[in-house]
């Protein structure tokens, strides 16, 4: 049996309902992936300092915000609908290395300097986060 015949006979094994099942399965996967992997479009960055909301800024305007904390000043950059902590006095720089936040629910936290940026808008992915 050559490969062409093999191919054709495999197609013959698929009944009309089987195609329907495959189609439904594929659709299910697309819907699931959309639901699970997309946290929604973020439109606002909520900046907190020492647990209190320092400011809440729209992502539509590019800007840099300086946030004072116990160790010094953290600089938050907002650009093209994304936000990141671009500079921070914390020793390990975890929040800086986290890079750009894009989706709603994403959050960067500089624990030593008690500064955090959280993106909101659309639907929130988490009700709460505990550390």
């Amino acid at each position: 049996m050559n490969s062409h015949e093999l191919h054709r006979s495999f197609l013959r094994d698929l009944k009309p309902g089987d195609w329907l099942t495959l189609l439904a399965g594929g659709l299910c996967i697309i819907l699931l992936t959309n639901k699970v992997w997309n946290g929604g479009i973020a439109d606002t960055a909520v900046i907190r300092s020492s647990g209190k909301i320092f400011s809440s800024v729209p992502l539509s305007r590019d800007q840099q915000i300086e946030v004072p904390g116990p160790l010094g000043t953290s600089i938050i950059t907002i650009e093209k609908g994304k936000a990141r902590i671009s500079s921070d006095p914390s020793p390990r720089q975890y929040c800086v290395r986290q890079g750009w936040l894009e989706q709603s629910g994403e959050i960067a936290i500089c624990l030593p300097n008690e500064v955090s940026v959280e993106l909101t808008g659309g639907q929130k992915k988490y009700d709460s986060l505990n550390y």
């Binding site: 698929l14 009944k15 309902g17 089987d18 099942t21 495959l22 399965g25």
Partner: peptide
């Protein structure tokens, strides 16, 4: 219990694996 004329082992298999 699906009609056998329309649904074959592929349907069974996909449903079972899901």
């Amino acid at each position: 219990h699906l009609p056998q004329r329309l649904f074959g082992p592929v349907t069974h298999s996909v449903l079972a694996s899901f």
